[in-house]
Amino acid sequence: MSDNTKTAPKISPLKKRKNPIYMAVIYIVCIFLAILCLFPFYLLLINATRSTTQIQQHAVSLIPSHFIKSNWNVFNGKEFKPIVGFKNSLIVSTCSTALAVYFSALTAYALTAYEWKLRDPFFGFIMGVMMIPGQLSSIGFYQMCYKLGLTNNLLMLIIPSIAAPMMVFFYRQYLQASLSLEIVESARIDGAGEFYTFNKIVLPIMKPAMATQAIFSFVGSWNNLFMPSILLTKKELKTMPLMVALLRGDIYRTEFGAIYLGLFLTVLPLIIVYLLLARYIVAGVALGAVKG
């Protein structure tokens, strides 16, 4: 290895050597894990098409059947309404994501572009409260909504997302790396107002960061169970996770086909979105972690 300075750019003999048993173990473990992650969803799909009797004879099957319609009919006149849940979740998730993305960007811009006295304490504060979950203030929050008569109001699930400390943190990191203050400066010289500059110049620069954060915010809001379950009691306002939780109830205990169909329907939109955006989502997770 004394002459490794010369051969360094070439592939060293160590690199070429692959132990076939070692590689086989790696692939077997990975394939096993992939099956572990994907098979449950396949099972949902298959069992959604099978009748309860078939499922009770053999709970696992790889071949679909043709009872999807009769499974669907079980939901008639019952509380589980996937379409209502889907609509409510869509409203809540879309609006709260839009608010969170816009106002977090605005706050992050205030933290990067301007010099103000309370800036550093404010940022420290945001980082301090970043990890505090909403669950812990839930009783006070519920009492507040109750006194104001705002329980059973989807707005109470939407408006609080204006303050999203985690997102502000990520946007600030992003802006510090990618926003040059000269652009802002030149916009000022051209006579643009500060708010106009933010909307027309800074927001477009932030688009990539906004997209990834929007996905996570949307999914988080879509999957939220705790807040809706304390605020919403009216049937027609229930979001998707609340609807799913109904499937555990006694009415469905014996209707396995219907349970599988219900579960599959709630998973389907997420799987579609995930498969379309998987690359960005996985990259987004990685991006969020690097700063740590």
Partner: peptide, 17 residues
């Protein structure tokens, strides 16, 4: 993509599942 997939599914759905 497969390993990350369970993370994105609603926890309520996963629990019932």
């Amino acid at each position: 993509v497969s390993f990350y997939m369970p993370n994105i599914i609603t926890a309520a759905t996963v629990g019932i599942m």
